[in-house]
Amino acid sequence: MEDMAIRSALFYISTKKQFENTAKGDTEMEESKLLLLLLPVLIIQLGLMIFALIDLIKIPVTNGPKWMWGVIIVVVNIIGPILYFVIGRRNY
């Protein structure tokens, strides 16, 4: 595990150095790197959305119509699921 983390870190650092060394306008490198960096962000976003949707399906009643919360969770990035957990869900 640790080994892998270090290696991927080294990979990132080397790409960063490469990136800095390459001339500006090498957009291909930039995009693939952006994707790798943002992948965990996307995974967490998706995870939040899935958790919120599962909960929405299982819970008997929400504050406000269920379909509306479904739309908010799916359409509004990050904030949607948080809003659902904080406001939409009847916690008490």
Partner: peptide, 21 residues
């Protein structure tokens, strides 16, 4: 069971990642 254990840390991790990125 109300997923606080998951969604609150997830939001903090997101905030933590997005700042440097």
């Amino acid at each position: 069971r109300n997923y606080k254990l998951f969604w609150i840390p997830a939001v903090f991790i997101l905030l933590g990642i997005m700042e440097p990125v």
